[in-house]
Computed example of a mutant assay.
Amino acid sequence: MKLEQISDLPIVYMRRTGAYGEENNQLMARFKHWMTYNNVSKGNLLTDNAVVLGIIWDNPAHVPPEACRYDTALVLSAQQEITDECVQQAILQGGSYAVFTIEHTQEAMNRAWQVIFSELAGAGYQLDETRPILERYMPFMLEKHVCEICLPIQNRI
């Protein structure tokens, strides 16, 4: 775990609402197709400076599964301007995050989700449930078969 201050991020995104699971992967595949069509990626390869996020807005322990929101997003650079009705635009609020680097496999992701919250608490930090959890994917990380889960934190317990 490392701590990171993430700035407010301009993003374009696609959203699905429903229980978290396989349909999130389908949304990511649809978003990757959109990025290829819009020259943000070449096939499954992101351009060098692209940052893709999976944004988990709701805690299924507090929100009914059918109301859980998941976005797949691309962080825009200052010079990027995208106007396409397939995606929405927003500014994702930044803040302090605990960042966990994990293998980019389904098994590793499942294991990580089982332990990261206790690791966070064990390090003396409290989850900030007013901001979303981020899954972060960048080309240099994907080349190493890793990704990051970024937990928003409030302060030390």
Rank of each mutant, 00 (worst) to 15 (best):
D58G: 06
L92N: 13
I91R: 09
H33P: 02
L45Y: 05
M35T: 08
V12K: 02
N24F: 07
C68F: 03
L76P: 06
P65W: 04
H62Y: 06
E22C: 07
Q93F: 01
L92Q: 09
L27P: 02
T72R: 07
I11N: 12
A73K: 03
Y37A: 14
A73L: 05
E81R: 07
I91T: 15
R30D: 07
N25T: 09
P10T: 15
N44V: 04
R30P: 02
A78R: 09
V12L: 11
K32Y: 08
D84W: 09
L9S: 10
P60W: 01
L46Y: 06
G43F: 05
P65Y: 03
Q93K: 11
P10K: 13
H62A: 07
W34R: 13
Q79H: 12
F31R: 01
L9D: 05
A78Y: 01
G21P: 01
A78T: 08
M35L: 15
N25R: 10
D84L: 13
N59W: 01
I55S: 09
Y20E: 11
N44F: 00
Y20G: 14
V52N: 03
K42H: 06
Q93I: 12
Q88P: 03
T47N: 12
T36R: 12
P65R: 04
E22P: 02
Y13V: 01
L74M: 06
A50T: 12
Y70L: 07
Q80G: 12
I55G: 05
N44D: 08
V40L: 15
N44K: 12
M14C: 14
A50R: 09
I11F: 09
I82H: 03
V75S: 04
M14S: 11
T36C: 08
V75D: 00
Q88K: 14
A73H: 01
V87Q: 05
I56C: 10
R30G: 02
S77F: 00
E85R: 14
I82Q: 05
T72M: 13
A50V: 15
S41N: 11
D71Y: 06
K42T: 15
T72Q: 08
I82A: 08
I55R: 07
A73I: 04
A50S: 09
M14Y: 01
T17Y: 01
S41T: 08
G43D: 12
G43L: 10
I91P: 04
Q89C: 11
A50W: 02
V40R: 14
L76H: 04
T47W: 01
L27E: 05
P64R: 08
N38V: 08
D8S: 10
V12A: 13
T72N: 07
L53N: 03
V51Y: 07
L92G: 10
V75H: 02
N24K: 04
R16K: 07
N44Y: 00
Y20R: 12
H62Q: 10
P10F: 03
N44I: 04
A61Q: 15
G21W: 00
D48E: 08
A29K: 13
P10Y: 04
E66W: 02
R30L: 10
C68W: 03
N59E: 11
